[in-house]
Amino acid sequence: MSEKRHVIDARRCKACGLCVDNCPKDVLALGSTINAQGYNYVYQKNPDKCVLCDICGIVCPDVAIGVVVE
């Protein structure tokens, strides 16, 4: 049986906020940590609320976040 997990690629995130705005469970937020490109990248502020719906991955223009199947 395959497992799903939520992933965030901080190197690719440009802090556009689309994933934060579209998350139905209020899992994501813009953090205070800055990546190499100078953006405050997204983090899971409420990881226990994530239902692995992958809406964040669908709306992300940089493919920096989403749900992967292992």
Rank of each mutant, 00 (worst) to 15 (best):
C23A: 14
Y41M: 07
A64K: 00
H6M: 11
G31M: 10
K45Q: 15
C60A: 13
K14I: 08
P47F: 06
C16Q: 00
Q44L: 08
C60Q: 04
D62N: 11
V63I: 15
P47W: 13
G38F: 02
G57H: 01
C16K: 04
V20I: 11
I58V: 14
G66M: 14
P47K: 01
D54Y: 08
I65K: 00
V20S: 11
D48G: 12
V42P: 00
N22S: 13
K25W: 05
N40D: 05
V59R: 05
G17W: 11
V69M: 11
V51M: 06
V42G: 00
L18M: 13
N40K: 09
C56D: 01
I34A: 02
I8F: 02
K14E: 09
H6I: 12
A10G: 07
R12N: 05
A15V: 04
R11D: 12
I55Q: 04
G66D: 14
C16I: 02
G31V: 10
C19P: 07
A29K: 08
I65H: 02
C23P: 05
P61K: 03
Q44R: 07
Q37L: 12
V67P: 05
R12Y: 01
D21P: 04
C23H: 05
C60D: 05
V42L: 05
C56H: 03
D9M: 12
I8D: 02
L28V: 08
S32D: 15
K25E: 07
G66T: 09
D54T: 02
M1Y: 12
G38P: 03
C50S: 05
L52D: 04
R11E: 13
R5D: 13
L52R: 07
M1W: 11
G17E: 10
G17F: 13
Y39L: 01
G57A: 06
L52M: 15
I58L: 10
I65L: 05
D54V: 01
G38W: 10
N40W: 01
N46T: 01
V69E: 15
V51E: 15
V42C: 12
R12A: 08
V59K: 02
N46S: 08
I58M: 04
Y41A: 01
N22C: 07
D62C: 03
G66P: 04
Y43D: 12
P47Q: 08
L30C: 11
S2E: 15
E3L: 15
R12T: 03
Q37K: 15
D21F: 10
I34L: 08
V7C: 08
Y39E: 02
K49G: 01
I8T: 01
V67W: 11
C13E: 02
G17L: 14
D54P: 02
E70R: 13
D21I: 08
C19N: 09
I8C: 00
G38E: 04
G38Q: 03
R5H: 14
P24D: 00
V27F: 02
Q37C: 07
L18Y: 10
